[in-house]
Design a protein around this nucleic acid. Sequence first.
RNA 1: GUGAGCGUAGCUCAGUUGGUUAGAGCAUCUGGUUGUGGCCCAGAAGGCCGUGGGUUCAAAUCCCAUCGCUCACCCCA
Length: 418
Amino acid sequence: MIKAVTGTKDILPSDINRWYYLENIVKEVFANFNYKEIRTPVFEETALFARGIGEGTDIVSKEMYTFLDRSETSITLKPEMTAAVVRAYIEHSLGTLQPLNKLFYISPMFRQERPQAGRFRQFHQFGAEAIGSTSPLLDAEMIEMSYNIFKQLGLKDLVVKINSLGVPQSREEYKNKLRDFLSDKKDKLTEESRKRFDKNILRIFDSKIESDQEIMKNAPLLIDYLDEESKNDFEIVKEYLTKVGIPFEVDSALVRGLDYYTKTTFEVISNKVGSQSALCGGGRYDLLIEELGGKPTPGVGFAAGMERILLACENENSFTLPDPSIDVYLIRIDKGLESTVAEIGSLLRSQKLSVEFDYLNRSTKAQMREANKLNAKYVLFIGGDEYSRGELLLKNMADGQQKIFKKDEINKIISEVK
RNA sequence: GUGAGCGUAGCUCAGUUGGUUAGAGCAUCUGGUUGUGGCCCAGAAGGCCGUGGGUUCAAAUCCCAUCGCUCACCCCA
């Protein structure tokens, strides 16, 4: 038997309504904040991600689905969306049409990681990008939108973490301070953290090992080394979040794994999804557009993992959807009336009613059981004595009441059902 | 890439110290008198016990390998 590739999942009809529910809330909230949807191809030239996300990042160096197409072009299935949106922004000169572009997306992403709870190789993200303004109010808006979406989904067990990474220059200065601090403690760190010392020193704060955490307790904090502008912007973000009633924690250890982040970064964590607890993450990327060949333009955005969010919703039992139902099930009493049933079905369907009937030549009883299983509001009996008298029998499945209609009075049946 | 756990019907799981035709619940299908659902009752269908090899008179059960799944590290959404 051929099975779905490792780390990929089918979304079956029994799951789809939860996805629609999520997607509708996402679209509503983005419309609420005047973000417009953008759709980009699932694959791009590999160079886009290498340059945008950073060669040294885990995503680029070991997780991308990269292959040569038949014309020997290196192609990569998109592992994240920001680089793709920025590419489209530059390519179509969106910045010349209006100074600020507020964009959102819902799309599959691909990363070849080891699957785990809340982590897949093909997964789905929604997210937003606001390109063209340095206003920290937009940073806060990103947090507000994601928070609103989670609230509307009924999620409760959430923590919003924010941090500021500052500008590259102040960050470099800070990294040197951190290196100095750790220079005589380096050999006490775990092997994993010693690797981080060279690769991405900020990450040592993330270590889950107690001995590492003990060492880092007295380490200098990035927050204390921010440049003035980053510091002011961060204050504005905090102030706004407080005003609109979004609880948050400042986490100076919050480091994002993509190279392009500057200033504000944030994550929303759920305690209900296992160890892959970040439901969404994002931040400002004021240098990325220039890096990718556009005019220097500031931007800020976030991305949210839809599988993780739905997992959190399931584990918190945060919402329940009504059972799907149909309006009318047509019951064929006599053999030979198949095409009559289909014709009546066509009439009802043309009036936007959801209608189903039997295609398997089953007994009346079996058809009734099917109608019940489909949660039909009404069944319409076609056949028997009534039919030979020119009549049809309509039964309300909730209360069992039956009414007789003339065969040529389908309109009356339709208004009864509606 | 590293580590741990688990693979028996569509799903959730039983399967006694290795011992005949491998079970249950749910789901599916068919019935329970002339043409009517849910509840109930009766019956049916559905498994090379993940795959390959080994030990044994005998393997779902023990051993090895392999594949797959799950969780964790890592990383991230």
